[in-house]
Design a protein around this nucleic acid. Sequence first.
DNA 1: CGTTTGAATTTTGCATTCATTATTCAGTTT
DNA 2: AAACTGAATAATGAATGCAAAATTCAAACG
Lengths: 223, 223
Amino acid sequence: MHDSPLIERRSLATELVERLRGLIQEGQLRPGDKIVEPELCERFGVSRTPLREALKVLAAEGLVDLAPNRGARVARISPEAVEELFPIMGMLEALAGELCIERMGSADLALLEALHARMVAHWRACEWVPYGRLNRQVHEEIFRIAGNGALAALYQSLLIRTHAIRFMARKTPERWAEAVDDHDRIMGALRARDAAALNLIMREHLRHKADVVHEALQQLDNG
Amino acid sequence: MHDSPLIERRSLATELVERLRGLIQEGQLRPGDKIVEPELCERFGVSRTPLREALKVLAAEGLVDLAPNRGARVARISPEAVEELFPIMGMLEALAGELCIERMGSADLALLEALHARMVAHWRACEWVPYGRLNRQVHEEIFRIAGNGALAALYQSLLIRTHAIRFMARKTPERWAEAVDDHDRIMGALRARDAAALNLIMREHLRHKADVVHEALQQLDNG
DNA sequence: CGTTTGAATTTTGCATTCATTATTCAGTTT
DNA sequence: AAACTGAATAATGAATGCAAAATTCAAACG
């Protein structure tokens, strides 16, 4: 039997869920924006039925707030929500780190080292955007190595929910250095395969990220 | 101004999500069952539109599997999924425990002690059902005291996803005793406000629960 | 007797339609 | 001028309709 790749079939609603997630992530739809169904229907060339199904899903994910008879808005993220979500993400990253240590082979570690080194180089060069990309890749790679799909999916969904806010949160140079230092220590714990240490660092790392967001929110309120 | 309670308005889809969740939880709809839209529509007296919206939401929650053009089935939970989900739940419970220690007042602790004592009494009397109820209440109370709504919601959703399997998983007397012992140690750590210890116990407790489920799955395959 | 084929039936995906509920805005009142 | 009223408009919630896909099942074939 020839093992041909399955023909992938998707419903409009599924397609729309991903498109809308994308729009929210890249900031085309911003937190608090009203989502008017006929408008988006025209934009995507679909009827309201699949769009509504997609909105229901996004609401279940927490990306969209749905008020009965009053339509949908892109969810705003409050300081309280940050306070709630980041510790959870910290725990999930900590678990990912532990699993990663259990399963990681030398090739995996080498890949992480390489990504980390490139990330640090971009930091030294003050290259914001590629730094951010590498940063994300390191975390993704850790989750991949951890090999727990449900964990990765859950983390990803929380990441998207908090994305809007990080988008705005410009790191100060000190915070940036702190993040790089966290990553250095993460790599150290991975090399040493020290699960307990990694656990603590991961949670501290997320605590720092939460602090950055809080500072950014403070700025918004003042300025 | 008189502070009247808001009139609560719900869409049919929202209502259906909860009804269907209930049906799945109480075993009226069992894992692997095909969900035929017209059938359920008749049962609830609604049209397919809101029902389909509800199914999309349940699919996003992982309670239902949706295959394009081939309808919905109540999600089956595989041994692999257990392997993935229980460690996550362990981490979430561990976090809840830590937060609980941070925020718990003496009244909170007293309530937990009372629930725990009643639970143990039911165990001694071999009273299955009330034991289970108290067990659940203890965990719920810990999450309530922890005061992190997102954490509680996330845990709840994983709990429902794994519910079907626990439904079947009959504990052996040894496992039952083990669970009670776990709870004893949890109470001990709470009394001592020892977050690090509680963290470990919580994760171990969930590890044990996963073992129970695995044993049950084994039984099903053999018998 | 087990497979295969293809028409009849059922079920699903999506568009459309209709009723209900918000929102907007001009006209009125204070 | 600010605040209220209510008709006109627009948006949402849900039912219905219709085309495309899957499933079923009986007849034909090896």
